[in-house]
Amino acid sequence: MIREEQKMQDITPDSLIRSVQAMKDGGKRLVQIGCARIGDIFEINYSFDKDYNFENLKLTIPSGLEVPSVSGIYTCAFVYENEIHDLYGIEITGIAIDFKGTFIRTSIKYPFGVVSSKEEDACQNKL
C-alpha cells in the first residue's frame, strides 16, 4: 500500500488570491475546498492536484471575517464556496454564481458553524 504525502502550506487572507493564482499558473487542478471549525477558528483547505501530486493551502481565519472568492480563477470553486457559506456562515465575497444561502437548505441555519448541541434525550426513545 502506498500512502500519499500530505503537503500543507499555510496562507493568510491577503495572500489567498495570489497563492491560488500561482497554482493555476502552475497548471494545477482545483480538487476541493473544505472547511473545518476548531473552536472559534475556521480552517479553509484548498486542495490542488497535478499529475497525482496533491497539495493543500490552509487558510486560518477567526469567525466573522470575510474571505475573497477564488471562483474568478477557478469557476468550479463556486460549488464549494456556496457550500461553505451555507454550512458555516462564512461570508465569501464575489462568488461567480452566488446562491446567497439557498444552495444547501437546512432547517438550522449554518449548522456546522454552531457548537454541536447535546442530545437531550437518547435516540432510542425517539420514534
Partner: peptide, 10 residues
C-alpha cells in the same frame, strides 16, 4: 443554473 440541497442529511 444548478441547485442542490434537497437531500442534505448532515
Amino acid at each position: 443554473i444548478p441547485t442542490i440541497g434537497y437531500v442534505h442529511r448532515g
